[in-house]
Write a protein that binds this DNA or RNA. Structure first.
Lengths: 151, 151
DNA sequence: GTTTGACCTCAACATTAGTTGAGGTCTTAG
DNA sequence: CTAAGACCTCAACTAATGTTGAGGTCAAAC
C-alpha cells in the first residue's frame, strides 16, 4: 500500500484506517447525510481530506452522547461550507459543553439521591426520591432510550 | 375501578398504574425474567405487592444507565428470596454507585478535554486529546452503544 | 494483460427496549 | 346473565447504530 501523497483524496480504506471508523460505518454515515464523497470513474468513493475533521467532529459528538440525528443537524446548520471550521467548532462545542454539563448534573443528582437511599432500603415508588425524579408517567415513545436518564 | 384492598394481589393494570410502567413493558420484563406473576384460573396475571419494589429497583437501575441484562443478573444474584430486601438493596446500590461514579468521571474528563479544545479548533485525529481517548480502533461489536462513552 | 485485493450495492441481520395490533378470553358490575 | 372493559398471546414493527454476506466490479502491481 503506497503512502498517500498528502493531497490525493482518500480511499475508503484509508479513511477508515485513519479515523478508526469501519468502512461499513462510513457507508452508513454517508447514507445518513453525515459525510459525502466524490466518485471515481469506476464509482469508487474518494474522500476529501477534511472529511477526517468531519469524522473527528462526529466521533467527539457521539462521545458526548449525542445521537447521529442531532450531529447531522448540527453539521447541516453550518453556513454552507460543510466541514466545521475552527469557528464552527467553537460554537458547536459550546453547545455540546452545555449538554455535557446537563448530563453530569443529572447523574450527580441521581448519585445524591442514591446516597440518601443507601441503607434506607425504602425504594418506595411513593416516597423515595430516587423513584420520583420528574417523570410522571413513563410515556416517551418507542425505541432505545437515549441515555437512560430523565430528560 | 375499586380500590385494591391492600393485600389482594395486583392486576397488571394496577401494577402498571402504580409503577408508571406500561403493561406491554411489564410483559416484556416478564419475558426477560425480571419479574414474575401468578396466574388466575383464567390465565390472567396477578402480581405480589413486592413486585412494586422490584420494579422500583429496575427503574432506578435503568436510570443509573444499566442495561436490563445487568439488572436481571443482579436480581438473579440475590440469595434466593427474589425481590431485593433492605440488605440486598444496600449491597447492590453500592455497585450502582460505583457505576455512577465511573460515568460521571468519564464525562468530566471529556468535559475537560472539550474545554481545552474550545477555541483551538484542532480536532485532529492525531493530536487532539478529545479525539484520542483510549479506543484504538472502534471495534466493539454490533448493536446500539451502551452510553456512547468510552469504556 | 491478468490477477489479487480493495471496492461497489443491496438486502438481511443484530441489539436494546419496548409498542402496536389482531383475534380471542376473563371478570365483574348491573 | 350479559355486556363492557380488562386481559391474554403472538407476531410484527419502531428506532438507533451499525455489521455481514452475496454477487459483482475496479485498480494497480507484476
Amino acid at each position: 500500500m503506497p503512502q498517500a501523497p498528502a493531497h490525493r483524496p482518500l480511499t475508503i480504506g484509508e479513511l477508515s484506517e485513519r479515523s478508526g471508523v469501519s468502512p461499513s460505518a462510513l457507508h452508513f454515515y454517508e447514507r445518513n447525510g453525515l459525510i459525502q464523497a466524490e466518485r471515481t470513474a469506476g464509482n469508487q468513493r474518494r474522500y476529501r481530506r477534511d472529511t477526517l475533521r468531519r469524522i473527528a467532529f462526529i466521533k467527539t459528538s457521539q462521545r458526548v452522547g449525542l445521537p447521529l440525528k442531532d450531529i447531522r443537524d448540527a453539521l447541516d446548520s453550518l453556513p454552507d461550507g460543510r466541514t466545521p471550521t475552527k469557528r464552527d467548532w467553537t460554537r458547536l462545542s459550546r453547545r455540546w459543553r452545555q449538554e455535557l454539563d446537563d448530563r453530569i448534573a443529572a447523574l450527580e443528582h441521581l448519585r445524591n439521591d442514591l446516597d440518601g437511599c443507601i441503607g434506607c432500603g425504602c425504594l418506595s415508588l411513593k416516597s423515595c426520591a430516587l423513584q420520583n425524579p420528574a417523570d410522571e408517567l413513563g410515556a416517551s415513545g418507542p425505541g432505545a432510550r437515549r441515555w437512560g436518564l430523565p430528560k
